[in-house]
């Protein structure tokens, strides 16, 4: 599903150049649930941003579902993001003046899906994350966990190839974190490919594979026995 070869990325900070990713080789198969771990500054968020086409790579190649992601203009990148990727952010990033259902329907709006179908799909995915009754509520009326579940429903709504989650539990307490992870695991069980950036070991243990980044290189890449979050819920 994802193929990364010899990926380099550096940021220019004035005269100095900061080499963040120093040759990453990394593949993800369909249906995997991968945790990308590392301390802050290890390059894990940069890697995720490149995977999410939110940032461009300097060297190397990136292939997503057989499509080479290279030299995309803004419009193309936007279309690919819309088609291939679903994002889950640490700070939820819901649009505060739109109701839960409208937030979930937004990626479909950009896919030019008809309004009626958008509403149906939004409701379907909200039901899947257990928030059907909250469809008409604004984000400000929801708890942190509920907001993240809305965000997950939104990421799913476009039916992307890969879900990218950047510290999805970073802003949540541990009980809510496990609830969210339980949901992510269930989504993964349905065959969806999910990448999670986290620095919390217990969250990483709930994935099927852990990739350790340090100073811009992968120091460890192992498959693990998944801990089911449902045990803690």
């Amino acid at each position: 599903m994802i193929e990364i070869k010899d990926l380099h990325k550096s940021y220019k900070m004035g005269k100095n150049s900061l080499h963040v990713l120093k040759g990453i080789n990394f593949n993800v198969e369909e249906g995997e649930l991968v945790a990308i771990m590392g301390s802050s500054g290890s390059g894990k968020s940069t890697l995720l941003n490149i995977l999410g086409m939110l940032d461009e790579l300097d060297e190397g190649s990136y292939t997503l579902d057989g499509v080479a992601i290279k030299n995309l203009n803004e419009t193309k990148a936007a279309q690919y993001r819309n088609k291939f990727l679903g994002f889950i952010f640490q700070s939820f990033n819901l649009i505060n003046y739109k109701s839960a259902a409208e937030n979930v329907a937004l990626p479909l709006y950009y896919q030019k899906v008809a309004r009626k179908e958008r509403q149906e799909k939004a409701l379907k995915y909200l039901t899947q994350v257990g928030l059907k009754e909250w469809a008409g509520h604004l984000p400000s009326e929801l708890s942190g966990g509920q907001k993240q579940r809305v965000a997950i429903a939104r990421a799913m709504a476009a039916e992307p190839k890969v879900l990218l989650a950047d510290e999805p539990t970073g802003a949540l307490d541990s009980k809510t974190s496990y609830e969210v992870m339980d949901l992510i695991q269930k989504i993964n069980d349905q065959g969806n490919t999910i990448l999670i950036v986290t620095h919390e070991p217990d969250i990483a243990d709930m994935c099927k594979r852990i990739v350790h980044l340090k100073d811009g290189v992968i120091i460890e890449d192992k498959k693990i026995e998944q801990v089911r979050a449902s045990k803690y819920v």
Partner: peptide
Amino acid sequence: KELGIRKALGATP
């Protein structure tokens, strides 16, 4: 921020 979210969700320039 809102425009950033929209772009991440697939809004073209």
